[in-house]
Amino acid sequence: MGKKKGASTSGAAKVSRDWSASAISNRDINKLRALGFISASEDDIRLPAHEFLRCLLFFYGIQLWQLTPNSILHLSIFITVCEAFLGIDPHWGL
């Protein structure tokens, strides 16, 4: 069988390595600091996550990106049921 015309020999698409400069201004950075997304000491971006989610990630020693979208949905539903319908803080014992 012959090779198809236009087929890539490596099978991978070419990835552009050119990155454009960020257009964020000091005003934007200060606004993010005021909202608590960037700490005052270091320029890191923080996730405004619920304390229960942060504790769960710490307990299992995982990162948020390691959870599937359905896992995040189930955790959100659990937190909502606990707080909105039961009127309690989410707890491991539930």
Results as ranks from 00 to 15, higher is better:
59 F>G: 01
1 M>D: 03
74 H>C: 13
90 P>N: 13
76 S>G: 08
47 L>S: 04
52 F>Q: 05
79 I>F: 06
68 T>L: 08
44 D>F: 10
17 R>S: 11
83 E>T: 15
28 D>K: 00
94 L>D: 10
28 D>R: 02
73 L>D: 12
5 K>M: 08
32 L>V: 01
7 A>W: 10
94 L>V: 10
40 A>E: 10
54 R>T: 15
63 Q>I: 00
57 L>D: 07
12 A>V: 10
67 L>V: 09
28 D>P: 00
67 L>K: 09
88 I>T: 09
54 R>F: 06
92 W>K: 06
57 L>E: 07
53 L>N: 04
45 I>R: 00
74 H>M: 12
31 K>V: 12
22 S>A: 01
83 E>V: 10
84 A>T: 08
3 K>S: 13
52 F>C: 03
11 G>N: 09
34 A>Y: 09
45 I>A: 07
91 H>Q: 15
74 H>P: 00
19 W>G: 06
49 A>T: 14
21 A>K: 05
69 P>D: 05
10 S>E: 05
36 G>A: 05
75 L>F: 12
61 G>Y: 06
42 E>D: 13
74 H>S: 09
94 L>H: 11
56 L>C: 11
41 S>T: 02
7 A>Q: 14
67 L>N: 13
40 A>V: 08
39 S>N: 11
64 L>W: 07
18 D>Y: 09
56 L>A: 14
37 F>L: 14
88 I>K: 03
15 V>A: 15
